[in-house]
Design a protein around this nucleic acid. Sequence first.
DNA 1: TGGTACATGTAACATGTTACATGATTAG
DNA 2: CTAATCATGTAACATGTTACATGTACCA
Lengths: 181, 181
Amino acid sequence: MPQPLNATAGSLLGFLHERPMSGWDLLETARARIGGFWTITRSQVYRELTRLAADGLVEVSEPGPRDRREHTLTDAGRTAFRDWLGRRPGPEQIRYPLLLTINFGHHLPPDQLAAHIAAHRAIHQERLDSYTATLATTTPDPYTRATLDFGIRYETAVLDWFDHLPHDLTANPAQPPPAAV
Amino acid sequence: MPQPLNATAGSLLGFLHERPMSGWDLLETARARIGGFWTITRSQVYRELTRLAADGLVEVSEPGPRDRREHTLTDAGRTAFRDWLGRRPGPEQIRYPLLLTINFGHHLPPDQLAAHIAAHRAIHQERLDSYTATLATTTPDPYTRATLDFGIRYETAVLDWFDHLPHDLTANPAQPPPAAV
DNA sequence: TGGTACATGTAACATGTTACATGATTAG
DNA sequence: CTAATCATGTAACATGTTACATGTACCA
């Protein structure tokens, strides 16, 4: 087992405790379950799965229906997962480009700055809505519930922050730029 | 000008509007001013400065006292900065390993999970304290103030979250692992 | 004269992003 | 029969991290 698991690989092993899955399934699952505080791309999933298989932490089935390959956790995988999970979790990282824009805001026309701010506020509102909807329609286990709560408190705090920004940062936003995805 | 500035390079140019600086100065400045929501390492600073110089966005002085090289913003640099700043800021990203640990918490002995949680709570408390101390001793401009407020609201919300976690996630933490830095 | 803060940078590697490339199954 | 969804993967590149390597100036 060459090198210690990174958090992405560890999480994949974690999900594989539930059932064997394809790379596709794992990506979907990760997006749905930890996507709020851990981003993963398809490339990463396949890269990590390749490595996990090489290290004997998962076993890969023959290609099924749509070339689908099921990945099954091995005993070594279970052990590696527990080792990873028991390690001290690394520091939290936030990277928020909007705050950079605000930090240098005096270099920007006020209406443009306000437009950027408005666009981001909308994103946070949507996320909060989706979290509360989830909470209203499902009954998560206490652990999932704790992470959901985190999301809700976080988004609520951020929205509050938006709503208490000084007027001159938010007044008269420019026409929002196309495609505020 | 080969490719568009990334946010790190853009920020460096932003700071150079104030005065010419060495890589060292820029790292210090960035840590102090945007470190709460944008991490930068020394390697990155030097790498970006090399590129910025190659692209003519900064001018590098002859080595001074301690091999110190001052970087001065050029007109092209000012233009590039404004272009960068005007672009729509990218999505916010949070990566919080502790939440992964919690998400998979049922695989972990309760006291260990509680210990990890306690360690992280302490970190957030310290950060909140340092932000409020800053606010108490300085009078930041409105833009800096807005980013500081973000930090305060964020840390406050996170601490609240910690304090409302269900008892069984936080009770009887194991002896905290060595060096909770 | 000795310790701390200042100052530079490279090398090696790990991680993350984007674009490209291909094809099968299913539901309507 | 056709569009949407499922499914795989690679290549190229950008970004981020860690460890190594070296030396100067200042202050007490």
